[in-house]
Nucleic acid binder design. Structure first.
Length: 584
RNA sequence: GGUCCGGUAGUUCAAUCUGGUUAGAACGCCGCCCUGUCACGGCGGAGGUUGCGAGUUCGAGUCUCGUCCGGAUCGCCA
């Protein structure tokens, strides 16, 4: 049905008879001559119809936008003055010899050209139209190429792609599960996997040595710009490996993608300890394209009269930080108020600042808080921050979590507003994660997951779980957590101890994880792995900030599909047996 | 669950702050004209339950409350 893709026809094809199939992109009717721009996946080409062949001309006259047609014709050079340099195929055109209309089309619900932005809900309701737009299908094609490259890197490292079940068991920890009622076992449910975590460990115990999978994962949690309820992981696990082995592999994988699909210039990927990341950036996924860091000034503020600073400085659960923003002294009062409001929504009680106007002069600093602070303390702060004239210093003080969240968010906002980015690609590893963190109820919960190998011995872990570090690592790119992994526990006694620390009774552990403990007891190789978020990788490599842009049929923020109207009610016939499953 | 932004022709927006005649524009669509356009052009035309429901008012697209939908974000996401 075609000899060429529309977008591929070039001057070298002049004189050739070609056959193309595609969609009517635009019709320009000049009365005596009709131009149809025909579009397919590769691009657009202009077809010319003259009245000499009346039937074909009349057919072309009846064509409308998005009709699906077939053209046979002769490629010829455009006449002088009619060359369109804005078009990839602008030097040639097709002189139509015949036209077949395969399929008529209603007027599209929205324009498919690039001259008008269309709201996302309209696009998602008519995704089949949206997918025809080059910038949309380009991203999906690039996703396919990225996945292919991932497979080739992993295959060349002797990894084997193995599938794991979609219908599986609910897990007690972690995200909410999507549940599937079992007809055969009334009252019982499958869960869709949050990740293939346990299966890939079982594959290692099963001697498969090196596993990977492009795996669909499901988490019934609220959505974000970079989070969908079903998403895809590049899931990797290997036996007899160290942290170093996995980090090297993960880094090779991502940097080879960056090298192939971007203008990335290789750098040594820094490794940052979790604790240092929190101290310096206020978060565990810093955007290292931004040259801003928090300076902890709690020590300096301990003896100040100013309670706003000295209070948190003397509270072990609080902190006081200063943020030097080079050249930002020009920020207006209105803008500063906006930032105060911004951090306020994240829980901060205020946003103190000092403008550095003329450091060498007596009144060279401007700030409402100067009168509350000792001059020597101010001097210590300015010298610790190495400030220069024209800088702005912002302060965060209070509960450590609030300060970290608000100041790390402020850093990203300032970077956007003031265009502070100094590089295009800034990867890093975050390492030395704690094993556990405390919930609001002061219970211990896994920071990574319960199968993570601690750095310490069983006794040390049991005696001081709060301080124990994990053999875990996250890969962060431009402020996005792209992947994370760990070495896994391969000793059933250690695994039982971790369940115990997490408050999972041995009965529950046996009931939910008996198969794992039994597997660990039957000859388990030391193993570990990592999983990358494929959607986020593609998102970054295609330059978008919205995960929906790289998924063919994404869900809205309320986890529904505007195209199919899923989820929906089910008919009685399709629920046969299932109500019994739900009601027990 | 919280906070914030948005919802007006098929599409993108204006009119909302400051309530007041028949809710406008562009693109698209329909008809007529046009042999070199390419976001073609000219003339004419059709197209609206202002998301939905209450309330305030002589009068509501505009103000208030509720609700639904879309988006950003906090919580949540081992």
């Amino acid at each position: 049905m075609r000899s060429h893709y529309c977008g591929d026809i070039q001057s070298s094809d002049i004189g050739a008879e070609v056959e193309i199939s595609g969609w009517v992109h635009k019709r320009r009717d000049h009365g005596g001559v009709i131009f149809l721009d025909i579009r397919d996946l590769h691009g657009i080409v202009q077809v010319v119809f003259n009245p000499e062949s009346k039937d074909t001309f009349d057919l072309a006259d009846s064509c409308r936008s998005e009709f699906v047609i077939n053209i046979k014709g002769l490629v010829r050079a455009r006449i002088e003055g009619a060359i369109n340099p804005k078009m990839a195929t602008g030097e040639i055109e097709i002189e139509a010899q015949s036209l077949i209309i395969y399929s008529k089309a209603l007027t599209p619900k929205f324009p498919l050209d690039d001259y008008q932005e269309v709201n996302e809900d309209v696009r998602l309701k008519n995704r089949f139209l949206d997918l025809r737009r080059p910038d949309v299908n380009d991203r999906l094609i690039k996703r396919s190429k990225i996945t292919s490259k991932i497979r080739s890197v992993l295959e060349s490292n002797n990894f084997h792609e193995i599938e794991t079940p979609i219908l599986t068991r609910a897990t007690p920890e972690g995200a909410r599960d999507y549940l599937v009622p079992s007809r055969v076992h009334p009252g019982e449910f499958f869960a869709l996997p949050q990740s293939p975590q346990l299966f890939k460990q079982l594959l290692m115990i099963g001697g498969l040595d090196k596993y990977y999978q492009i795996a669909k994962c499901f988490r019934d949690e609220d959505l974000r710009a970079d989070r969908q309820p079903e998403f895809t992981q590049v899931d990797i696990e290997a036996s007899f490996v160290t942290t170093e082995d996995i980090i090297n592999l993960g880094e090779d994988l991502i940097t080879s993608l960056l090298a192939e699909f971007t203008n990335y210039e290789p750098i040594e990927v820094p490794r940052i300890k979790y604790k240092d990341a929190i101290t310096k950036y206020g978060c565990d996924k810093p955007d290292l394209r931004i040259p801003l860091e928090l300076e902890d000034i709690s020590e300096l503020m301990k003896n100040e009269e100013f309670k706003v600073f000295s209070g948190p400085a003397n509270d072990p659960k609080a902190r006081v930080v200063a943020l030097r923003v080079p050249g930002a002294a020009e920020l207006t009062r209105k803008k500063i108020d906006e930032y105060t409001d911004f951090v306020g929504k994240l829980g901060a009680k205020g946003l103190a600042y000092i403008k550095v106007v003329a450091l060498e002069e007596e009144n060279g600093l401007q700030s409402p808080i100067l009168k509350f602070l000792d001059q020597a303390t101010v001097n210590s702060v300015t010298s610790a921050l190495k400030v220069e004239n024209g800088d702005m210093i912002f302060f965060g003080a209070g509960n450590a979590n609030v300060v970290n969240l608000s100041m790390s968010s402020l850093i990203k906002k300032l970077a956007d507003d003031l265009d502070l980015y100094v590089s295009e690609w800034a990867p890093c590893w975050i390492v030395d994660f704690p094993m556990f963190e405390r919930t609001k109820e002061n219970k211990l919960t896994s920071l990574h997951h319960p199968f993570t190998l601690p750095v310490v011995t069983i006794d040390e872990l049991a005696n001081n779980p709060d301080e124990a570090l994990a053999c875990a690592y996250d890969f962060v790119l431009n402020g996005y957590e792209l992947g994370g992994g760990s070495l896994r526990v391969h000793d059933p006694v250690m695994q039982s101890e971790i369940f115990k620390i997490l408050g999972i009774s041995s009965e529950e552990a046996d009931e939910k994880f008996g198969f794992l403990l039994s597997a660990l007891s039957s000859g388990c190789p030391p193993h570990g792995g990592i999983a990358f978020g494929l959607d986020r990788i593609v998102m970054l490599l295609t330059g978008t900030t919205n995960i929906r842009d790289v998924i063919a049929f994404p869900k809205t923020q309320s986890a529904s599909c505007l195209l199919t109207n899923a989820p929906g009610e089910v008919t009685l016939s399709s629920t046969r047996g299932v109500t019994r499953a739900i009601n027990g």
